[in-house]
Design a protein around this nucleic acid. Structure first.
Lengths: 157, 157
DNA sequence: CGACCAACATTGGTTGTGCCAACAGTTGGT
DNA sequence: ACCAACTGTTGGCACAACCAATGTTGGTCG
């Protein structure tokens, strides 16, 4: 695109700016993810959710990261083939699969995490540390307002 | 998704927050656009670009709003059938189509504009007017830094 | 002048992602 | 015994972004 001639009226809209900024962020993350051998951002989300709360069902994982059950199946299958997680039938509830992260998976997640953190820094580069906090706080409030999500950093009393 | 159990590590990342906020914005705009009889956001962008700078070629329009030439063709065709714009071969350069907005198109754009502006307000509702300015300013700097775009509000000297 | 390359609009196709529908197996409650 | 709800899986749809090939026209350079 020709950045210098973007219509003025568009550039002032929050939705447009958010979309552009989000695209840049996804681009930065996508590049680094791809270099680490992963095509989709869902892989990272799922591993994070898995590491944060022990063995769970696939449906639960999907609900937590906002991924459809069907898509969870694909990601889990792929990550299982890579040895990043184990998928075993839950003896207590035979509908479920108990998904557990492996040591190899944890190492892989650490790799991805480094890339993701680096991408954040690259994206926010033009902002000072204080400004970054302000930005994250405001974005958190917006997301919280529209989704009911309790974003961290809101417990200031 | 289950907003209450989103992994903490995800919620703190700027890319995740930006993605969520951007999604909310697109949802709000999408709903209102759909109510106004339009399916894609590109329609609005294209009309804005067209209104802002007289008759132009399709390629130019596409470059300005970041839309592929092929997609521009589809949108222009549809908008032409609705009577929102006129597409005539450029006598000076017979490769091009001269695209010009019509009165009816300008009226339609005004309608869409109302919806878009309302969507901005809805999205930023939890922020004070001053905070909105700060947010837009910071987002502008991020976009500017990663795309080379000169976002309005940066000419402070 | 002719040869060549760049730009234009159009058609058609590919990819990635989110979402929905149906299915069989399972659980818990009434 | 029945029924509603849940689980994992497969398959498909819709939409946006993007890419490739085509026929045409403009401009440039030898």
């Amino acid at each position: 695109m020709d950045p210098l001639n973007t219509p003025v009226r568009l550039r002032g809209h929050a939705t447009w700016l958010l979309g552009q900024a989000s695209t840049q962020g996804h681009r930065l993350i996508g590049e680094r993810m791809h270099a680490a051998g992963v095509t989709s951002r869902s892989y990272y989300s799922l591993l994070v959710a898995l590491a944060e709360s022990g063995p769970t069902s696939q449906a639960d994982l999907g609900r937590r990261i906002g991924l459809d059950r069907s898509d969870v199946t694909a990601v889990v299958t792929d990550l299982e083939e890579r040895g990043c997680l184990e998928r075993t039938p839950d003896p207590a509830d035979r509908r479920r699969n108990l998904v557990k992260i492996t040591d190899s998976g944890a190492k892989f997640l650490a790799e991805l995490d480094k890339e993701v953190v680096a991408a954040q820094a690259a994206l926010l580069e033009p902002l000072s540390p204080e400004e970054r906090d302000v930005l994250l706080g405001m974005l958190g409030r917006i997301v919280e307002h529209h989704t009911g999500l309790r974003v961290s950093g809101t417990e200031e009393r």
